[in-house]
Simulated scan of single mutants.
Amino acid sequence: MTGAERPTRVVLADDEPLMLAGLAAILDAQPDIEVLGTAADGRQAVDLVARTQPDVACLDIEMPVMNGIEATREILSRQETQVVMLTTFRREDYLVDSLQAGASGFLLKTATPEQLAESIRTVASGEALLAPEMTQALIRRTVHAESAAQDSATQSSPARDSTVEPLSQRERDVLAQAALGLSNSEIGERLFIGAETVKTHMSRVLAKLQLRNRVQAVAYAHRQGIVADSPE
């Protein structure tokens, strides 16, 4: 980290004191991350974020007074802080509700310290992050929902099948890698291009296909069969 760069500023919220202390210790040990404070419930988290204006808020989902999903909605209605949700439970409804509330990341508490730190860096850079264990479940759910919506629309008004013709070959390559759940930096390594270039290509993919976010792009890729070979 150069002198011109400042660390990523983080607040943490969890109602389990030992878990909270452990998270803080893990992140404080990172030279590029600074923990601004901790909270024991969702209401405290909202107030703490308002006071400290962090880059990232890392919130447990199941907390008293106000849960993490409710806290996320309130935080994002006030300011532009990225949110990473933490949970012990592999529940699809938690994942979907978190994303709908505006969270940029979703991580299970079984993640390693390295994965936790990297998740903070990832969402702070503007990327989305999902626990690998939950990615396929979300893709299946999203594809099913979109397919049902398309079937309903087709019955009422026949429409032209969507295609990948608007995409350049490089955009298609990036989309195929994203469908594996890879981050921009990982895609860049596989395609021998920079992470910022990957980000630019993904933005163009979303614009051309008229998709709202990366999750929809991944669902689209799986529906169309645009998936690269899995990394070894």
Rank of each mutant, 00 (worst) to 15 (best):
A21N: 11
A21G: 13
G22Y: 11
L23A: 00
I26D: 06
A29P: 00
D32W: 04
I33T: 09
V35M: 02
L36R: 06
G37N: 13
G37V: 12
T38C: 11
T38F: 01
A39H: 06
A39M: 06
G42I: 09
G42W: 09
R43G: 12
R43L: 15
Q44D: 14
T52Y: 02
A57Q: 05
C58G: 03
E62M: 15
E62W: 09
M63W: 10
M63Q: 08
P64F: 07
P64T: 06
V65P: 08
V65E: 15
G68N: 10
G68A: 10
E70G: 05
T72V: 03
T72Y: 02
E74T: 14
S77F: 09
T81H: 07
V83Y: 02
V84G: 00
L86C: 00
T88W: 05
L95T: 04
L95D: 02
L99I: 13
L107V: 11
L108M: 14
K109P: 12
T110F: 00
A111G: 10
P113S: 09
P113E: 05
Q115N: 11
L116D: 04
A117K: 07
T122Y: 06
S125M: 05
G126K: 13
A131K: 03
P132A: 03
P132D: 06
E133F: 00
E133T: 08
A137H: 15
L138S: 03
I139H: 02
I139M: 01
R140M: 14
R140D: 15
V143Y: 00
E146G: 00
A148V: 07
A149S: 07
